[in-house]
C-alpha cells in the first residue's frame, strides 16, 4: 500500500518588500552583522599587531635574556615559542664557568622533553643523566664560549626549565608554547 507523500500548503512565508516582491530581506540583522564584522576585524588587526610585535612568538617581544648573579651563565631564549617551530637557546658562559679546560652545563629534563631539544651545538664531549636532567661536558679554554640548543617544542602549554653550571647558581625560565 503506497502512502501519500506528506504535504504542506504553500503560504506567503518569505517576507515581501512593499508587499510585492518576495525578498526576505532582514536589514536589522545585516546592521548587527556589520557591527559584528567590525569587531571581528578589529580583533584580527590586534592579533596581527601582536604577531608583528612578537607577542605570539618569533618577534622582538618574544626574546628574553636571563643570567645568574655570578655571571657564570647568560642565556638568550624566547619566552614565547610555537609548537614544532625551530628556535634556539644560546648559553654564554662567564669566566667562572670554566674549570680545568672544561665547562659543564646542566639542563633540566623539560628542555629535552617538552621543549624538544633537537641537538646541542657544539657536540658535547660527554653527556650524563641525573638530577632530573642532562649534564653536558664541553672542552673549553678561552672566552667567549657559547653553546646553542636547537629546540622544536612538541607540546603546547607553559613549561619551566632550569639550566646552568653544576655547583653554581642556575637560571630558571618559563616558556609559553603556543599551538
Amino acid at each position: 500500500m503506497a502512502t501519500e507523500p506528506m504535504t504542506n500548503p504553500v503560504e506567503d512565508t518569505v517576507a515581501k518588500v512593499d508587499g510585492y516582491v518576495a525578498v526576505g530581506e532582514d536589514l536589522e540583522f545585516q546592521r548587527r552583522w556589520w557591527r559584528f564584522e567590525r569587531v571581528v576585524w578589529t580583533v584580527f588587526v590586534l592579533i596581527l599587531v601582536c604577531d608583528l610585535l612578537g607577542l605570539l612568538g618569533r618577534g622582538y617581544l618574544a626574546k628574553a635574556q636571563s643570567k645568574t648573579s655570578d655571571q657564570s651563565v647568560t642565556m638568550d631564549y624566547e619566552r614565547i615559542e610555537r609548537t614544532n617551530t625551530p628556535s634556539i637557546i644560546t648559553v654564554n658562559f662567564g669566566p667562572g664557568a670554566i674549570h680545568g679546560g672544561e665547562v659543564r652545563l646542566f639542563v633540566s629534563g623539560s628542555v629535552v622533553k617538552e621543549l624538544g631539544a633537537q641537538r646541542v651545538v657544539p657536540q658535547p664531549k660527554t653527556s650524563e643523566i641525573g638530577d632530573g636532567g642532562v649534564t653536558y661536558t664541553f672542552e673549553a679554554n678561552r672566552l667567549p664560549a657559547t653553546v646553542d640548543i636547537a629546540l622544536s617544542p612538541s607540546l603546547p602549554g607553559i613549561h619551566h626549565f632550569t639550566l646552568g653550571v653544576p655547583g653554581s647558581e642556575m637560571v630558571q625560565a618559563k616558556v609559553t608554547v603556543l599551538p
Binding site: L48, L56, R58, R82, P179
Partner: peptide
C-alpha cells in the same frame, strides 16, 4: 615555510583576509 604552527598559519590567513578586505 618551516613554521607550521597553528598560531603562524592563523596569522597568515588573517593577514591575507585583511589585505583582501
Amino acid at each position: 615555510a618551516n613554521d607550521r604552527s597553528l598560531t603562524n598559519c592563523t596569522c597568515a590567513v588573517i593577514a591575507v583576509g585583511l589585505v583582501h578586505r
